[in-house]
């Protein structure tokens, strides 16, 4: 990144520089102020949820304010222990599925994406269209056939239906994502390598993959978040409560005919946000480690 301040520093006398700096700082302060205010507005629902998770359950809907009048951790304690297993059990199940899905998507989708982005083969356009087409059908109408398929395979109440398809690149979204990213990489890189005698596997693993860190990070983060939050397929394929995951467990707190445990639900929702937020925090530095920060400088 070019830095304005460094550029301006040379050839200015002290007072002029101070004035410029002051102006700059004012501008920056304003930027920050706007960004923070905007952030707070964006976060209001989340803050409300956190605040509610700390209120005694009976007063969550009776009390309007954002600041709790009395703080209790009962919802966390009760929520953690309310279900068949401690909540950690569901976090663990979700973590296993999510980890499998992330690895599967990274491997399978990047392979497919390389072929679509860099290689020539017959009917490429057709297959690309098919690939995009598979994203277009809503999940709900394939659910029953999928269930039959997986139950014929004996996969109901195992994690296979949620993990194996990822290793077979069924999330075409990410293939498309990586195709688009790879296509922003100048082709002379791999052509040079090709002339140097490198094979496609070498180009893929040594050039494209390292240069696609942002795309891979995006894939990893999105897969993580979507799998972590996915409800319907986990509900359908995992009916045994021992196999329940976080989204399914969270809904166990609710009953539309009344008697929902809103307090524990909010508390566990806050906890369930932890891993995805953590993963995002950890992963986001790779998001920006593109060409800009790699050896190409």
């Amino acid at each position: 990144m070019t830095n304005n301040r460094d550029a301006k520093r040379t050839g200015l006398n002290d007072t002029a520089m101070a004035r410029v700096l002051l102006k700059l700082r004012g501008q920056k302060l304003l930027t920050h102020l706007v960004l923070i205010l905007f952030g707070l507005m964006m976060l209001y629902p989340l803050l409300w949820m956190i605040s509610s998770s700390l209120k005694p359950e009976e007063i969550i809907f009776r009390e309007q304010g954002l600041i709790p009048t009395s703080i209790t951790f009962d919802n966390f304690v009760n929520g953690w222990n309310a279900l068949r297993h401690p909540f950690s059990h569901y976090l663990f199940n979700s973590a296993v599925i999510t980890a499998g899905a992330v690895v599967g998507n990274l491997l399978a989708c990047s392979l497919a994406a390389y072929a679509f982005a860099r290689l020539e083969f017959p009917f490429k356009k057709f297959w690309f269209a098919v690939m995009l087409g598979t994203i277009m059908l809503p999940l709900h109408v394939v659910l029953v056939p999928q269930y039959i398929l997986f139950s014929e395979l004996g996969w109901i109440n195992t994690f296979y239906p949620l993990i194996v398809p990822k290793f077979l690149a069924t999330d075409a979204f990410f293939i498309f994502l990586m195709v688009q990213f790879i296509r922003t990489l100048p082709r002379d890189l791999d052509e040079a390598a090709l002339i140097d005698g490198a094979g496609h596997w070498r180009i893929f693993s040594r050039i494209i993959i390292p240069l696609s860190t942002p795309a891979l990070a995006t894939t990893a983060i999105f897969t993580f978040i979507w799998t972590w939050n996915d409800f319907l397929s986990q509900l359908i394929f995992l009916t045994n409560p021992d196999m329940h995951t976080v989204p399914v467990a969270l809904r166990t707190f609710l009953d539309s005919s009344g008697d929902s445990s809103w307090g524990p639900m909010f508390a566990m929702s806050v906890i369930a946000l932890g891993p995805i937020f953590g993963f995002f925090l950890a992963g986001q530095k790779y998001l920006v480690r593109g060409i800009a920060t790699s050896g190409l400088k």
Binding site: L111, A115, F121, K124, W127, V142, L149, L168, T170, F204
Partner: peptide, 23 residues
């Protein structure tokens, strides 16, 4: 190159035939 491409696409093809296309 086409052969290599199909190797790269192999997992996707298997998924397409076995898992995606049936439902």
């Amino acid at each position: 190159e086409a052969l290599i491409a199909h190797l790269f696409l192999a997992p996707w093809f298997v998924g397409l035939i076995a898992i995606t296309s049936i439902p």
